[in-house]
Design a protein around this nucleic acid. Sequence first.
DNA 1: AATGCATGCAAGCGCATACTTGCTTGCATT
DNA 2: AATGCAAGCAAGTATGCGCTTGCATGCATT
Lengths: 198, 198
Amino acid sequence: MDETEQKILDAALSVLVSKGYEGTTTRRIAEAAGVNEVTLFRKFQSKENILREVIIRNLNSALALIDSMFQMETEADQAVSLRNMGLDFIKLMSERIDLISILIEEGRRKPEVQEILSPATQILIKRLSECFELQIKNGKMRNIDPKVAAVTFISFTFYICLMKKFLEGIIGDKEEALEGFVDIFTKGIIKVNDKNLR
Amino acid sequence: MDETEQKILDAALSVLVSKGYEGTTTRRIAEAAGVNEVTLFRKFQSKENILREVIIRNLNSALALIDSMFQMETEADQAVSLRNMGLDFIKLMSERIDLISILIEEGRRKPEVQEILSPATQILIKRLSECFELQIKNGKMRNIDPKVAAVTFISFTFYICLMKKFLEGIIGDKEEALEGFVDIFTKGIIKVNDKNLR
DNA sequence: AATGCATGCAAGCGCATACTTGCTTGCATT
DNA sequence: AATGCAAGCAAGTATGCGCTTGCATGCATT
Protein backbone atom coordinates (compact mmCIF):
# COMPACT_ATOMS: atom_id res chain seq x y z
CA MET A 1 0.00 0.00 0.00
CA ASP A 2 1.98 2.97 -1.25
CA GLU A 3 1.30 6.58 -0.46
CA THR A 4 -0.65 7.31 -3.63
CA GLU A 5 -3.02 4.41 -3.07
CA GLN A 6 -3.64 5.57 0.48
CA LYS A 7 -4.38 9.10 -0.72
CA ILE A 8 -6.88 7.70 -3.20
CA LEU A 9 -8.66 5.57 -0.60
CA ASP A 10 -8.86 8.47 1.85
CA ALA A 11 -10.25 10.72 -0.86
CA ALA A 12 -12.73 8.07 -1.96
CA LEU A 13 -14.11 7.79 1.59
CA SER A 14 -14.48 11.53 1.96
CA VAL A 15 -16.23 11.85 -1.40
CA LEU A 16 -18.43 8.85 -0.65
CA VAL A 17 -19.78 10.20 2.64
CA SER A 18 -20.24 13.72 1.30
CA LYS A 19 -21.69 12.94 -2.12
CA GLY A 20 -23.31 9.52 -1.72
CA TYR A 21 -22.78 6.30 -3.62
CA GLU A 22 -23.86 7.47 -7.05
CA GLY A 23 -22.33 10.89 -6.53
CA THR A 24 -18.92 9.32 -6.05
CA THR A 25 -17.32 9.69 -9.48
CA THR A 26 -13.79 8.91 -10.45
CA ARG A 27 -13.24 12.54 -11.40
CA ARG A 28 -14.20 13.69 -7.88
CA ILE A 29 -12.06 11.08 -6.18
CA ALA A 30 -9.07 12.06 -8.32
CA GLU A 31 -9.59 15.73 -7.61
CA ALA A 32 -9.95 15.14 -3.84
CA ALA A 33 -6.84 12.94 -3.82
CA GLY A 34 -4.87 15.45 -5.86
CA VAL A 35 -3.94 12.88 -8.48
CA ASN A 36 -4.82 12.39 -12.10
CA GLU A 37 -7.96 10.40 -12.84
CA VAL A 38 -6.01 7.87 -14.85
CA THR A 39 -3.91 7.03 -11.80
CA LEU A 40 -7.02 5.64 -10.10
CA PHE A 41 -7.42 3.07 -12.84
CA ARG A 42 -3.73 2.20 -12.96
CA LYS A 43 -3.81 1.45 -9.23
CA PHE A 44 -7.23 -0.15 -8.77
CA GLN A 45 -8.43 -1.03 -12.29
CA SER A 46 -12.03 -0.01 -11.56
CA LYS A 47 -14.06 2.32 -9.39
CA GLU A 48 -15.77 -0.69 -7.84
CA ASN A 49 -12.44 -2.00 -6.54
CA ILE A 50 -11.74 1.32 -4.87
CA LEU A 51 -15.08 1.47 -3.13
CA ARG A 52 -14.90 -2.15 -1.98
CA GLU A 53 -11.50 -1.52 -0.43
CA VAL A 54 -12.74 1.61 1.33
CA ILE A 55 -15.78 -0.17 2.75
CA ILE A 56 -13.95 -3.26 3.94
CA ARG A 57 -11.22 -1.27 5.67
CA ASN A 58 -13.69 0.95 7.45
CA LEU A 59 -15.94 -1.85 8.65
CA ASN A 60 -12.98 -3.92 9.82
CA SER A 61 -11.61 -1.07 11.88
CA ALA A 62 -15.04 -0.62 13.45
CA LEU A 63 -15.36 -4.31 14.26
CA ALA A 64 -11.93 -4.29 15.89
CA LEU A 65 -13.05 -1.49 18.20
CA ILE A 66 -16.30 -3.27 19.00
CA ASP A 67 -14.51 -6.41 20.09
CA SER A 68 -13.06 -4.58 23.08
CA MET A 69 -16.07 -2.39 23.71
CA PHE A 70 -18.78 -4.74 24.88
CA GLN A 71 -17.64 -5.69 28.33
CA MET A 72 -19.57 -4.85 31.48
CA GLU A 73 -17.64 -4.44 34.68
CA THR A 74 -19.15 -7.09 36.92
CA GLU A 75 -18.94 -5.14 40.13
CA ALA A 76 -20.22 -1.80 38.86
CA ASP A 77 -23.80 -0.61 38.66
CA GLN A 78 -25.46 -1.94 35.54
CA ALA A 79 -26.92 1.39 34.53
CA VAL A 80 -23.48 2.98 34.71
CA SER A 81 -21.91 0.19 32.69
CA LEU A 82 -24.60 0.39 30.07
CA ARG A 83 -24.29 4.14 29.84
CA ASN A 84 -20.55 3.89 29.34
CA MET A 85 -20.93 1.20 26.73
CA GLY A 86 -23.60 3.28 25.05
CA LEU A 87 -21.43 6.38 24.97
CA ASP A 88 -18.56 4.48 23.38
CA PHE A 89 -20.84 2.86 20.88
CA ILE A 90 -22.59 6.10 19.98
CA LYS A 91 -19.22 7.70 19.41
CA LEU A 92 -18.11 4.89 17.11
CA MET A 93 -21.45 4.91 15.33
CA SER A 94 -21.79 8.64 14.82
CA GLU A 95 -18.29 8.82 13.36
CA ARG A 96 -19.35 6.29 10.73
CA ILE A 97 -23.07 6.87 10.36
CA ASP A 98 -22.77 8.52 6.95
CA LEU A 99 -20.99 5.49 5.54
CA ILE A 100 -23.21 2.99 7.35
CA SER A 101 -26.33 4.70 6.12
CA ILE A 102 -25.05 4.45 2.56
CA LEU A 103 -24.16 0.79 2.97
CA ILE A 104 -27.53 -0.18 4.39
CA GLU A 105 -29.37 1.54 1.59
CA GLU A 106 -27.09 0.32 -1.22
CA GLY A 107 -26.97 -3.15 0.31
CA ARG A 108 -30.70 -3.52 -0.27
CA ARG A 109 -30.03 -3.78 -3.99
CA LYS A 110 -26.36 -4.66 -4.33
CA PRO A 111 -25.49 -8.18 -3.17
CA GLU A 112 -21.78 -7.33 -3.13
CA VAL A 113 -22.44 -4.68 -0.49
CA GLN A 114 -24.76 -6.99 1.40
CA GLU A 115 -22.05 -9.61 1.62
CA ILE A 116 -19.80 -7.19 3.45
CA LEU A 117 -22.43 -5.62 5.68
CA SER A 118 -24.29 -8.74 6.73
CA PRO A 119 -21.49 -10.44 8.71
CA ALA A 120 -20.53 -7.13 10.32
CA THR A 121 -24.08 -6.64 11.58
CA GLN A 122 -24.30 -10.17 12.84
CA ILE A 123 -20.98 -10.00 14.66
CA LEU A 124 -22.07 -6.76 16.31
CA ILE A 125 -25.27 -8.30 17.64
CA LYS A 126 -23.50 -11.49 18.63
CA ARG A 127 -20.85 -9.69 20.70
CA LEU A 128 -23.34 -7.66 22.64
CA SER A 129 -25.72 -10.55 23.20
CA GLU A 130 -22.83 -12.66 24.52
CA CYS A 131 -22.09 -9.87 26.94
CA PHE A 132 -25.71 -9.85 28.11
CA GLU A 133 -25.79 -13.64 28.28
CA LEU A 134 -22.90 -13.55 30.71
CA GLN A 135 -24.78 -11.10 32.90
CA ILE A 136 -27.75 -13.43 32.93
CA LYS A 137 -25.61 -16.38 33.94
CA ASN A 138 -24.07 -14.30 36.70
CA GLY A 139 -27.53 -13.49 37.97
CA LYS A 140 -27.17 -9.82 37.18
CA MET A 141 -29.93 -9.77 34.61
CA ARG A 142 -33.19 -11.62 34.59
CA ASN A 143 -33.91 -14.31 32.05
CA ILE A 144 -34.65 -12.23 28.98
CA ASP A 145 -33.66 -13.12 25.40
CA PRO A 146 -30.13 -11.67 25.19
CA LYS A 147 -30.32 -11.27 21.42
CA VAL A 148 -33.49 -9.23 21.62
CA ALA A 149 -31.92 -7.15 24.38
CA ALA A 150 -28.87 -6.59 22.18
CA VAL A 151 -31.01 -5.52 19.24
CA THR A 152 -32.98 -3.20 21.52
CA PHE A 153 -29.77 -1.54 22.67
CA ILE A 154 -28.22 -1.31 19.22
CA SER A 155 -31.38 -0.13 17.51
CA PHE A 156 -31.81 2.80 19.89
CA THR A 157 -28.24 3.99 19.60
CA PHE A 158 -28.27 3.47 15.85
CA TYR A 159 -31.52 5.38 15.48
CA ILE A 160 -30.43 8.45 17.41
CA CYS A 161 -27.23 8.62 15.35
CA LEU A 162 -29.09 8.14 12.06
CA MET A 163 -31.88 10.59 12.89
CA LYS A 164 -29.78 13.11 14.77
CA LYS A 165 -30.91 16.03 12.61
CA PHE A 166 -34.60 15.22 12.99
CA LEU A 167 -34.37 14.60 16.73
CA GLU A 168 -32.78 17.92 17.60
CA GLY A 169 -35.40 19.86 19.49
CA ILE A 170 -37.42 16.75 20.30
CA ILE A 171 -35.20 14.90 22.68
CA GLY A 172 -32.06 16.41 24.18
CA ASP A 173 -28.55 15.59 23.08
CA LYS A 174 -27.35 12.02 22.69
CA GLU A 175 -26.12 11.78 26.27
CA GLU A 176 -29.46 12.79 27.74
CA ALA A 177 -31.34 10.47 25.41
CA LEU A 178 -29.05 7.60 26.32
CA GLU A 179 -29.62 8.22 30.02
CA GLY A 180 -33.37 8.06 29.54
CA PHE A 181 -33.05 4.92 27.47
CA VAL A 182 -30.85 3.16 29.99
CA ASP A 183 -33.38 3.99 32.67
CA ILE A 184 -36.12 2.27 30.70
CA PHE A 185 -33.88 -0.55 29.57
CA THR A 186 -32.40 -1.49 32.96
CA LYS A 187 -35.52 -1.44 35.02
CA GLY A 188 -36.66 -4.23 32.79
CA ILE A 189 -33.56 -6.32 32.60
CA ILE A 190 -32.20 -6.03 36.12
CA LYS A 191 -33.15 -9.07 38.09
CA VAL A 192 -35.61 -8.10 40.77
CA ASN A 193 -34.78 -10.16 43.81
CA ASP A 194 -38.03 -9.34 45.55
CA LYS A 195 -40.53 -11.32 43.46
CA ASN A 196 -43.58 -10.08 45.35
CA LEU A 197 -44.10 -6.96 43.31
CA ARG A 198 -47.22 -6.24 41.26
CA MET B 1 -55.31 13.37 -11.46
CA ASP B 2 -56.10 11.48 -14.66
CA GLU B 3 -55.42 7.83 -15.33
CA THR B 4 -52.14 8.38 -17.15
CA GLU B 5 -50.69 10.47 -14.34
CA GLN B 6 -51.68 7.80 -11.84
CA LYS B 7 -50.01 5.10 -13.93
CA ILE B 8 -46.83 7.17 -14.05
CA LEU B 9 -46.78 7.75 -10.28
CA ASP B 10 -47.41 4.05 -9.57
CA ALA B 11 -44.63 3.09 -11.96
CA ALA B 12 -42.27 5.66 -10.47
CA LEU B 13 -42.78 4.21 -6.99
CA SER B 14 -42.16 0.68 -8.16
CA VAL B 15 -39.00 1.66 -10.03
CA LEU B 16 -37.83 3.78 -7.11
CA VAL B 17 -38.03 0.99 -4.54
CA SER B 18 -36.56 -1.64 -6.88
CA LYS B 19 -33.77 0.41 -8.47
CA GLY B 20 -32.99 3.10 -5.89
CA TYR B 21 -32.95 6.86 -6.21
CA GLU B 22 -30.23 7.18 -8.83
CA GLY B 23 -31.41 4.08 -10.63
CA THR B 24 -34.79 5.66 -11.21
CA THR B 25 -34.51 7.03 -14.74
CA THR B 26 -37.24 8.55 -16.83
CA ARG B 27 -36.77 5.79 -19.40
CA ARG B 28 -37.47 3.12 -16.77
CA ILE B 29 -40.47 4.90 -15.33
CA ALA B 30 -41.97 5.28 -18.80
CA GLU B 31 -41.39 1.63 -19.62
CA ALA B 32 -42.91 0.47 -16.31
CA ALA B 33 -45.91 2.75 -16.81
CA GLY B 34 -46.39 1.60 -20.39
CA VAL B 35 -46.29 5.15 -21.70
CA ASN B 36 -43.87 7.06 -23.84
CA GLU B 37 -41.04 8.84 -22.07
CA VAL B 38 -42.12 12.17 -23.45
CA THR B 39 -45.49 11.82 -21.74
CA LEU B 40 -43.75 12.01 -18.36
CA PHE B 41 -42.42 15.45 -19.16
CA ARG B 42 -45.70 16.65 -20.64
CA LYS B 43 -47.48 15.71 -17.41
CA PHE B 44 -44.91 16.55 -14.76
CA GLN B 45 -42.31 18.79 -16.51
CA SER B 46 -39.41 17.15 -14.68
CA LYS B 47 -38.34 13.92 -13.07
CA GLU B 48 -37.95 15.73 -9.77
CA ASN B 49 -41.63 16.69 -9.78
CA ILE B 50 -42.62 13.06 -10.27
CA LEU B 51 -40.50 11.82 -7.39
CA ARG B 52 -41.65 14.56 -5.06
CA GLU B 53 -45.27 13.70 -5.76
CA VAL B 54 -44.63 9.99 -5.16
CA ILE B 55 -42.86 10.63 -1.86
CA ILE B 56 -45.39 13.10 -0.48
CA ARG B 57 -48.35 10.87 -1.30
CA ASN B 58 -46.76 7.83 0.28
CA LEU B 59 -45.71 9.58 3.48
CA ASN B 60 -49.10 11.26 3.85
CA SER B 61 -50.93 7.97 3.57
CA ALA B 62 -48.62 6.51 6.21
CA LEU B 63 -49.16 9.44 8.55
CA ALA B 64 -52.93 9.12 8.17
CA LEU B 65 -52.70 5.50 9.29
CA ILE B 66 -50.47 6.39 12.20
CA ASP B 67 -52.93 8.93 13.54
CA SER B 68 -55.39 6.18 14.36
CA MET B 69 -52.80 3.60 15.35
CA PHE B 70 -51.25 4.91 18.53
CA GLN B 71 -54.01 4.42 21.06
CA MET B 72 -53.71 2.12 24.03
CA GLU B 73 -56.88 0.59 25.40
CA THR B 74 -56.89 1.85 28.96
CA GLU B 75 -58.36 -1.25 30.53
CA ALA B 76 -56.27 -3.85 28.72
CA ASP B 77 -52.92 -5.23 29.78
CA GLN B 78 -50.16 -2.86 28.72
CA ALA B 79 -48.03 -5.60 27.21
CA VAL B 80 -50.94 -6.73 25.05
CA SER B 81 -51.67 -3.17 23.94
CA LEU B 82 -48.05 -2.54 23.10
CA ARG B 83 -47.77 -5.77 21.18
CA ASN B 84 -50.85 -4.92 19.13
CA MET B 85 -49.59 -1.43 18.43
CA GLY B 86 -46.22 -2.88 17.52
CA LEU B 87 -47.71 -5.38 15.11
CA ASP B 88 -49.68 -2.68 13.33
CA PHE B 89 -46.68 -0.40 13.17
CA ILE B 90 -44.36 -3.13 11.93
CA LYS B 91 -46.84 -3.94 9.19
CA LEU B 92 -47.05 -0.30 8.10
CA MET B 93 -43.28 0.04 8.32
CA SER B 94 -42.30 -3.11 6.47
CA GLU B 95 -44.65 -2.25 3.61
CA ARG B 96 -42.77 1.03 3.17
CA ILE B 97 -39.28 0.26 4.40
CA ASP B 98 -37.72 0.28 0.93
CA LEU B 99 -38.96 3.80 0.31
CA ILE B 100 -38.19 5.01 3.82
CA SER B 101 -34.68 3.65 3.62
CA ILE B 102 -34.12 5.56 0.39
CA LEU B 103 -35.55 8.75 1.85
CA ILE B 104 -33.39 8.63 4.96
CA GLU B 105 -30.24 8.10 2.95
CA GLU B 106 -31.05 10.65 0.23
CA GLY B 107 -32.29 13.10 2.84
CA ARG B 108 -28.81 13.26 4.33
CA ARG B 109 -27.65 15.18 1.27
CA LYS B 110 -30.80 16.53 -0.37
CA PRO B 111 -32.50 19.28 1.63
CA GLU B 112 -35.66 18.93 -0.46
CA VAL B 113 -36.04 15.32 0.73
CA GLN B 114 -35.17 16.32 4.27
CA GLU B 115 -37.95 18.88 4.28
CA ILE B 116 -40.49 16.18 3.58
CA LEU B 117 -39.08 13.51 5.87
CA SER B 118 -38.32 15.64 8.89
CA PRO B 119 -41.89 16.63 9.81
CA ALA B 120 -43.11 13.07 9.18
CA THR B 121 -40.55 11.69 11.62
CA GLN B 122 -41.37 14.31 14.20
CA ILE B 123 -45.11 13.74 13.95
CA LEU B 124 -44.56 10.01 14.37
CA ILE B 125 -42.58 10.47 17.56
CA LYS B 126 -44.97 13.11 18.84
CA ARG B 127 -48.05 10.92 18.40
CA LEU B 128 -46.55 7.98 20.22
CA SER B 129 -45.07 10.06 23.01
CA GLU B 130 -48.47 11.72 23.55
CA CYS B 131 -49.93 8.26 23.86
CA PHE B 132 -47.32 7.36 26.48
CA GLU B 133 -47.78 10.66 28.26
CA LEU B 134 -51.45 9.88 28.73
CA GLN B 135 -50.55 6.55 30.25
CA ILE B 136 -48.23 8.28 32.67
CA LYS B 137 -50.93 10.74 33.71
CA ASN B 138 -53.34 7.86 34.21
CA GLY B 139 -50.84 6.20 36.49
CA LYS B 140 -50.36 3.27 34.15
CA MET B 141 -46.71 4.03 33.45
CA ARG B 142 -44.05 5.32 35.78
CA ASN B 143 -42.56 8.74 35.30
CA ILE B 144 -40.20 8.09 32.39
CA ASP B 145 -39.50 10.54 29.56
CA PRO B 146 -42.31 9.74 27.10
CA LYS B 147 -40.31 10.97 24.11
CA VAL B 148 -37.39 8.68 24.90
CA ALA B 149 -39.83 5.82 25.38
CA ALA B 150 -41.40 6.61 22.01
CA VAL B 151 -38.00 6.66 20.30
CA THR B 152 -37.10 3.38 22.01
CA PHE B 153 -40.26 1.75 20.66
CA ILE B 154 -39.95 3.21 17.17
CA SER B 155 -36.24 2.51 16.85
CA PHE B 156 -36.65 -1.18 17.64
CA THR B 157 -39.51 -1.73 15.21
CA PHE B 158 -37.76 0.35 12.56
CA TYR B 159 -34.53 -1.57 12.99
CA ILE B 160 -36.03 -5.03 12.64
CA CYS B 161 -37.83 -3.94 9.47
CA LEU B 162 -34.71 -2.31 8.04
CA MET B 163 -32.38 -5.18 8.94
CA LYS B 164 -34.82 -8.01 8.30
CA LYS B 165 -32.47 -9.83 5.92
CA PHE B 166 -29.53 -9.69 8.32
CA LEU B 167 -31.57 -10.71 11.34
CA GLU B 168 -32.98 -13.88 9.84
CA GLY B 169 -31.38 -16.72 11.70
CA ILE B 170 -30.36 -14.51 14.62
CA ILE B 171 -33.64 -13.61 16.20
CA GLY B 172 -36.91 -15.26 15.23
CA ASP B 173 -39.56 -13.65 13.07
CA LYS B 174 -40.83 -10.14 13.74
CA GLU B 175 -43.62 -11.30 16.03
CA GLU B 176 -41.28 -13.22 18.31
CA ALA B 177 -38.82 -10.36 18.38
CA LEU B 178 -41.57 -7.91 19.24
CA GLU B 179 -42.76 -10.13 22.08
CA GLY B 180 -39.26 -10.20 23.54
CA PHE B 181 -38.93 -6.46 23.15
CA VAL B 182 -42.26 -5.69 24.81
CA ASP B 183 -41.21 -7.90 27.71
CA ILE B 184 -38.07 -5.83 28.22
CA PHE B 185 -39.81 -2.55 27.51
CA THR B 186 -42.81 -2.98 29.82
CA LYS B 187 -41.06 -4.26 32.87
CA GLY B 188 -39.33 -0.92 32.88
CA ILE B 189 -42.19 1.39 32.18
CA ILE B 190 -45.03 -0.18 34.14
CA LYS B 191 -45.51 1.65 37.37
CA VAL B 192 -44.54 -0.61 40.22
CA ASN B 193 -46.96 0.13 43.04
CA ASP B 194 -44.89 -1.73 45.60
CA LYS B 195 -41.94 0.63 46.00
CA ASN B 196 -40.05 -1.62 48.41
CA LEU B 197 -38.25 -3.64 45.80
CA ARG B 198 -34.47 -3.67 45.50
C1' DA C 1 -67.79 15.94 -40.67
C1' DA C 2 -64.71 19.08 -38.17
C1' DT C 3 -61.93 20.37 -34.29
C1' DG C 4 -59.04 19.74 -30.36
C1' DC C 5 -56.54 17.27 -27.27
C1' DA C 6 -53.86 13.35 -25.34
C1' DT C 7 -50.48 10.37 -26.61
C1' DG C 8 -47.03 7.90 -29.52
C1' DC C 9 -42.84 7.88 -32.21
C1' DA C 10 -38.24 9.01 -33.89
C1' DA C 11 -34.58 11.74 -33.55
C1' DG C 12 -31.55 14.43 -31.34
C1' DC C 13 -29.19 17.83 -27.87
C1' DG C 14 -25.70 18.67 -24.40
C1' DC C 15 -23.66 16.68 -20.72
C1' DA C 16 -21.55 13.37 -17.50
C1' DT C 17 -20.03 8.90 -16.70
C1' DA C 18 -16.29 4.83 -16.39
C1' DC C 19 -12.56 3.71 -18.63
C1' DT C 20 -8.59 3.67 -22.43
C1' DT C 21 -4.65 5.07 -25.22
C1' DG C 22 -0.32 7.26 -26.42
C1' DC C 23 2.92 10.16 -25.13
C1' DT C 24 5.64 13.03 -21.85
C1' DT C 25 8.00 14.16 -17.54
C1' DG C 26 10.69 13.69 -13.56
C1' DC C 27 12.61 11.25 -9.78
C1' DA C 28 15.31 7.18 -7.93
C1' DT C 29 18.15 3.38 -8.38
C1' DT C 30 21.91 1.59 -10.67
C1' DA D 1 25.30 9.28 -16.97
C1' DA D 2 21.84 5.64 -18.04
C1' DT D 3 17.64 3.09 -17.05
C1' DG D 4 13.12 2.23 -15.28
C1' DC D 5 9.09 3.23 -13.27
C1' DA D 6 5.34 6.19 -11.30
C1' DA D 7 2.59 9.69 -12.49
C1' DG D 8 0.71 13.58 -15.38
C1' DC D 9 -1.62 15.23 -19.51
C1' DA D 10 -4.71 15.43 -23.47
C1' DA D 11 -7.70 13.29 -26.12
C1' DG D 12 -11.07 10.03 -27.14
C1' DT D 13 -14.52 5.89 -26.72
C1' DA D 14 -19.19 4.18 -25.83
C1' DT D 15 -22.98 4.61 -22.94
C1' DG D 16 -26.62 6.64 -20.48
C1' DC D 17 -28.84 10.58 -18.61
C1' DG D 18 -32.78 14.42 -18.47
C1' DC D 19 -35.13 16.77 -21.58
C1' DT D 20 -36.78 18.87 -26.27
C1' DT D 21 -38.64 19.08 -30.93
C1' DG D 22 -41.59 18.03 -34.90
C1' DC D 23 -44.81 15.36 -36.64
C1' DA D 24 -48.30 11.54 -36.87
C1' DT D 25 -52.40 9.23 -34.93
C1' DG D 26 -56.64 8.35 -32.93
C1' DC D 27 -60.40 9.25 -29.85
C1' DA D 28 -64.08 12.49 -28.00
C1' DT D 29 -66.73 16.46 -28.10
C1' DT D 30 -69.05 19.62 -30.91
